[in-house]
C-alpha cells in the first residue's frame, strides 16, 4: 500500500515537473524581463545581464558579459548582432555563429527515460522572488543531476545547479536580480556608443549523411539532427541530447591510431580516441556535460553504419 502511494507521488511529480519545465522553456521567449545572473564553474565566475521583450510582434533579446571584455549579443527575431568593445577586439574574437533560437517544445518522454522529477513543496527566495525547486534525479550514472529553481508565479528559471554523481554542485547559474515587465523599448537593444558591432549572418550549415551509429547510448539520448554537420570541410559533427544535456561527437580522418584520452573541466568532459573503422583511421572526439564513463563508453560503441 505504501509503495502504491509513493509511486503515485512520483508519477504526480513527474507530470507536474514536466509541465513546469515546459512552462520554463516557454517563459524565456514569452515573458518580458531584465536581470543579472551569475554563472560559476569551479573557481570561475561570470556575471551577465539579460534583457528580453516582445515589441511590436518581434522578439528582442540582449545578453551582456559584465566581466572581462563586455561582449554583447543582441538578437532581434532571427537576426543576431555581436557587439565588441572595439574593432581590434572584433577582428581577433571568434564570432558567435549559432542561431539563438531555442527549441520551444520539451520532449517529456525522452526526459522521463533519463530522470525522475521531484518537486519541492517548500518555497525558497532567489533574487528576491519565491521559487520552488524542481530536481531532475538521474536514473543512472551516465548523466548528471539538475536542480531548477522556478519562479512560483511564472515558472521562470531563477537558478540552475548541475550536480555530479556525488551530488556536488559543478556548475551553477543564478539570478541575483530580476525584474519582470520592465517596460523595455527598442532603444534598450541598440549597441552602446563606442562599441563595434558585427551582424552575424547565419550560413546554412553544410550537412552530410550520418554514416555512423552507436551500439550503446544512455537511455533518452537521441540525435538532434538527422544528418551530420560538416566543419572545415573534413570533420563531421553529430549532436545528441536527452532534452536537458547535450553531447557533441566530432569525427575526422587521421593518420595514426591513438589511445583513449580524456579531460574534465567542471561539468564538461572531453574524450578522444583514434582507431581504424572499416578502411579508415578516424579520430573520434566527444564533448558533453556528462560523466567521464559515459564519454568512454560512447567512444567505444561508435560504429559505422552498415549498408542495408
Amino acid at each position: 500500500m505504501v509503495l502504491v502511494v509513493n509511486l503515485s507521488y512520483a508519477a504526480s511529480d513527474n507530470s507536474v515537473g514536466l509541465i513546469r519545465l515546459s512552462n520554463m522553456v516557454q517563459s524565456f521567449s514569452v515573458l518580458s524581463y531584465q536581470g543579472i545572473f551569475v554563472r560559476s564553474q569551479g573557481v570561475e565566475m561570470n556575471s551577465m545581464k539579460i534583457l528580453h521583450d516582445v515589441i511590436d510582434g518581434s522578439e528582442y533579446e540582449s545578453l551582456v558579459d559584465l566581466d572581462g571584455d563586455k561582449i554583447e549579443v543582441i538578437r532581434i527575431d532571427d537576426s543576431v548582432i555581436c557587439v565588441y568593445p572595439d574593432i581590434s577586439f572584433a577582428n581577433t574574437a571568434e564570432p558567435v555563429t549559432a542561431p539563438l533560437r531555442q527549441f520551444k517544445e520539451l520532449n517529456g518522454e525522452r526526459l522521463l527515460e533519463g530522470y525522475t522529477f521531484e518537486l519541492s513543496e517548500k518555497a525558497e527566495v532567489i533574487a528576491g522572488r519565491n521559487a520552488h525547486k524542481l530536481s531532475l534525479i538521474p536514473k543512472d550514472s551516465y548523466r548528471f543531476g539538475h536542480e531548477f529553481w522556478l519562479d512560483s508565479e511564472n515558472d521562470f528559471l531563477l537558478k540552475h545547479d548541475t550536480l555530479n554523481l556525488k551530488g556536488e554542485v559543478i556548475d551553477r547559474v543564478q539570478f541575483t536580480d530580476i525584474t519582470f515587465a520592465p517596460k523595455l523599448t527598442k532603444a534598450d537593444f541598440v549597441p552602446r556608443l563606442g562599441t563595434y558591432s558585427r551582424h552575424i549572418v547565419e550560413v546554412k550549415p553544410e550537412m552530410t549523411d550520418n554514416k555512423w551509429r552507436f551500439d550503446w547510448l544512455p537511455d533518452g539520448f537521441a540525435p538532434v539532427w538527422r544528418d551530420a554537420r560538416v566543419l572545415n570541410g573534413k570533420t563531421a559533427m553529430l549532436l545528441l541530447s536527452d532534452g536537458i544535456t547535450s553531447i557533441s561527437v566530432f569525427v575526422e580522418p587521421t593518420q595514426v591510431e591513438t589511445d583513449y584520452s580524456v579531460m574534465e573541466m567542471g561539468s564538461t568532459t572531453v574524450g578522444e580516441v583514434s582507431r581504424a573503422l572499416q578502411t579508415d583511421i578516424l579520430r573520434l572526439t566527444i564533448v558533453g556535460e556528462v560523466p567521464e564513463d559515459t564519454v568512454e563508453k560512447m567512444l567505444m560503441s561508435f560504429l559505422p553504419r552498415t549498408a542495408s
Binding site: 519545465l21 520554463m24 522553456v25 524565456f28 521567449s29 545572473f37 551577465m48 539579460i50 528580453h52 533579446e61 545578453l63 549579443v73 538578437r75 549559432a98 542561431p99 539563438l100 533560437r101 531555442q102 527549441f103 520539451l106 528559471l157 540552475h160 547559474v173 538532434v224 554537420r229 559533427m237 549532436l239 541530447s241 532534452g243 536537458i244 544535456t245 547535450s246 557533441s248 558533453g288 556535460e289
Partner: peptide, 11 residues
C-alpha cells in the same frame, strides 16, 4: 550548438 538543445534559452 548545445545552447539550442538544452532548453534554457539565452542563459
Amino acid at each position: 550548438q548545445s545552447a539550442m538543445a538544452t532548453n534554457q534559452g539565452m542563459i
